[in-house]
Design a protein around this nucleic acid. Structure first.
Length: 709
DNA sequence: TCAATCCGTATC
DNA sequence: ATACGGATTGAC
């Protein structure tokens, strides 16, 4: 009757009046889309991807519009959207798809992943940055190839090896590209890998980087050149490194290879505005290439053509916030979803990467063994203790004399690196004679003495030795040693052994990025080694036992990672570069030591993978760790058992750190890799049920973790 | 007969 | 988490 209620012309009912919204409720069982009505005045703003405020269960919460649709699937009445926070469509289809996949993989909630993936809004940054790139898309900085690129015409899929249409062009392409591929030419499969990126395909490579850094072929150049191929093919590139120093180096390499302004860096130390601006430049398509640390794995690079990350084994790649995703997992999920190429590189190889290689998913890209060994420094071993002799200066610094002599000679030619382990690793139990780590006879978990004076028990399943007692699986010995690690040599101590030589330290607190080629003693903890101009003349890797005896499943892989990380900064053996590994335990040589001497990290990774297959340890199996009260664990385990055939270790009490709260327990569940998805789904269901009935007892679920054992 | 309260369940 | 509805209880 009345005309008052009729919509005014400027406020017509939207053509797509329904908005699907992911709501950040923080509740696991509400981890899905809800539909809202789009009020006419928000029609143009409420585009897919924008942040919104909505009323949900009576309170004001944040969310993202994920879609607009003509009709609702929800039967009831729809509440109207309250407000569009910003017109910026931050949650792109690529991002929401990635976030969902990551949440599924880690049995986490989408909201948690979105908090990692989408930075907090910075309104000033949004306003200040132009919508369009300030300059028209820069012309390709790559000098045009002298011959028209034959690859342009080929749209047919190429095999993983170099395949071109005819022999003659192949020759031409080979030469042209050889100049272009630079350091990749040192790897037989390298140029073909680049060509496949250029052709818009999705090759995946696990690169064993050549040690040393001859001009223009440092590892950051591998990434920069691969990124250029993706960019030249009209697609985007995303590179992730563990820390700030690596970021500086890849950043510089990208500037060299791509020119200025073609990429952005993204890292936590940037501050909110700079960070959000950089993120927006990627989102708005001002740049097609991003390099950053951990959180950058979610960067909104458009039309992703390449993902890459350096040093998979670095624990900085593990996100410490729920659901604890690892950079390599996130990037491989993205590569799979977008059809992007993938490259991970390091001086050593993690077992996780080797597992992909062994499964045929990623190609191993390495220089021929002889080339690799020639590029590496000469490695020798100095034993533990027996070599400490009367030599006054060396003895005072607790240095094996062989190490001291090498350093003294090398200091005449350039800087010498001394790697000293940090203190404070967990004590573990190992065979008294051969130092093979003691493992549980039931589940192969690590054995430790939880309470001083008590009997040893497994840190995973809690079982003791049983009636037979300990017997070393390697040598049959029945006595144990407890390794207390972490003697740290002071700079003064070492400095006194080399009078008159300047001493530089780099470690927790103060990390140095580089040193000159002047003779200097550089003392660093693992991971904090400065790069030396022209390479170190030598390196001393001290207290090898401190790394090898760690109570960690990954001890030997991690030891090799740290040693190669330092040794790769030394000049090649052809230039006299040498390394002494000191403090190696007596008895049978550990595989990690052998792998360093032979410079064969892939071999060690494969040996380790084989062993983990035999012992049913990750990454040969999929595991998850549940922490909570006995009752919560029991209920969770029986629920999981309804849907998945899991192997259950525990529950066993976690030693509390004097908090006085009721003792928590942990349980580890494991399944074959093929059941990984089913396990994650089951864990999600457990989380959801518990959340729905408001279970007051906390239960923490962490996929891919066995705790700090 | 009505209001106050408890409990279970949906949240668009 | 809230909020709402339906059931339950208690007092007039």
């Amino acid at each position: 009757m009345s005309t008052i209620d009729r919509p005014r012309p400027a406020m017509l009912t939207p053509a797509l009046p329904v908005a699907a919204v992911v709501v950040d409720s923080g509740l696991a069982h509400l981890d899905r889309e809800f539909e809202y009505a789009v009020p006419p005045e928000l029609d143009s703003l409420a585009q897919p991807g924008v942040r919104v405020k909505i009323r949900f269960a009576g309170r004001e919460v944040d969310g993202f519009v994920t879609a607009r649709r003509a009709t609702a699937t929800h039967a009831g009445r729809l509440t109207p959207l309250r407000k569009v926070v910003s017109p910026e469509p931050v949650l792109t289809p690529d991002l929401i798809e990635t976030a969902r996949a990551v949440a599924t993989r880690y049995a986490g909630v989408l909201g948690d992943v979105l908090r990692l993936a989408v930075p907090k809004r910075h309104a000033a940054a949004e306003k200040a940055l132009p919508l369009e790139p300030p300059v028209p898309p820069a012309p390709p900085v790559t000098p045009a190839p002298p011959v028209p690129a034959p690859a342009m015409s080929s749209t047919s899929p190429m095999s993983s090896t170099a395949t071109t249409t005819s022999a003659a062009p192949d020759q031409t392409v080979g030469t042209v590209r050889a100049g272009k591929s630079g350091p990749w030419s040192a790897y037989p499969a390298g140029p073909a890998f680049l060509r496949r990126i250029a052709a818009g395909q999705a090759p995946a490579a696990a690169v064993l980087a050549l040690p040393g850094r001859p001009a223009g072929s440092d590892w950051p150049d591998l990434f920069a050149l691969a990124a250029r191929e993706a960019l030249d093919a009209g697609r985007g590139a995303l590179l992730v490194v563990p820390d700030h120093r690596d970021l500086d180096r890849v950043d510089a390499a990208l500037t060299r290879v791509l020119g200025k302004g073609q990429h952005v860096r993204l890292s936590a130390e940037q501050g909110p505005q700079a960070r959000y601006t950089a993120w927006l430049r990627a989102l708005r398509g001002h740049v097609r290439c991003v390099v950053g640390t951990r959180a950058a794995a979610f960067a909104p690079v458009r039309d992703l053509g390449l993902v890459g990350w350096w040093d998979d084994g670095d624990d900085l790649h593990e996100e410490p916030r729920a659901p604890y995703p690892q950079v390599g997992e996130v990037l491989s999920i993205r590569a799979e979803l977008t059809g992007a190429a993938l490259v991970t590189a390091g001086f050593s190889r993690s077992v996780e990467v080797q597992e992909r290689v062994d499964a045929g998913e990623w190609a191993s890209v390495a220089a021929p063994g002889e080339v690799l060994r020639q590029a590496a420094p000469a490695v020798s071993i100095a034993g533990e203790g027996h070599d400490l002799e009367r030599d006054g200066l060396a003895a005072r610094a607790h240095l094996p004399s062989a190490a001291w002599r090498l350093a003294r000679t090398a200091l005449e030619h350039g800087p010498v690196l001394v790697q000293v382990p940090r203190r404070g690793y967990l004590p573990a139990l190992a065979c008294q004679i051969c130092r093979t780590p003691a493992r549980c006879v039931v589940c192969h978990g690590p054995m430790a003495v939880a309470i001083p004076g008590a009997a040893a028990s497994c840190r995973w399943c809690g079982k003791g030795w049983g009636a037979a007692g300990f017997e070393c699986v390697e040598c049959g010995n029945t006595t144990l040693r407890r390794s207390v690690t972490g003697a740290r040599r002071t700079a003064e101590e070492l400095g006194r052994a080399f009078p008159g030589v300047p001493v530089v330290t780099s470690g927790a607190g103060e990390v140095r990025a580089s040193v000159s080629s002047e003779p200097t003693l550089v003392i660093a903890t693992p991971g904090a080694e400065p790069v030396a101009d022209g390479g170190y003349a030598a390196a001393l890797l001290l207290d090898a036992w401190a790394l090898l005896d760690r109570a960690d499943l990954n001890a030997s892989i991690e030891a090799l990672r740290r040693w190669t990380g330092a040794a790769a900064l030394v000049q090649p053996r052809s230039s006299g570069g040498a390394v002494v590994l000191a403090g190696v335990p007596e008895g049978p040589t550990s595989l990690a030591v052998e792998a360093l001497v032979r410079w064969d990290p892939a071999w060690l990774a494969q040996r380790e993978l084989d062993e983990r297959r035999v012992l049913s340890l990750p990454p040969a199996v999929r595991v998850a760790r549940l922490v909570g009260s006995r009752r919560a664990l029991d209920e969770a385990v029986s629920a999981i058992r309804q849907s998945v055939d899991v192997d259950v270790l525990g529950p066993l009490p976690i030693p509390d750190h004097g908090s006085g709260e009721p003792a928590k327990h942990q349980t580890i569940v494991r399944v074959p890799l093929s059941k990984g998805t089913a396990l994650a789904a089951s864990l999600t269901a457990v989380r959801s049920t518990r959340s729905a009935r408001k279970d007051p007892e906390p239960l923490n679920i962490q996929v891919d973790s066995v705790g700090d054992a």
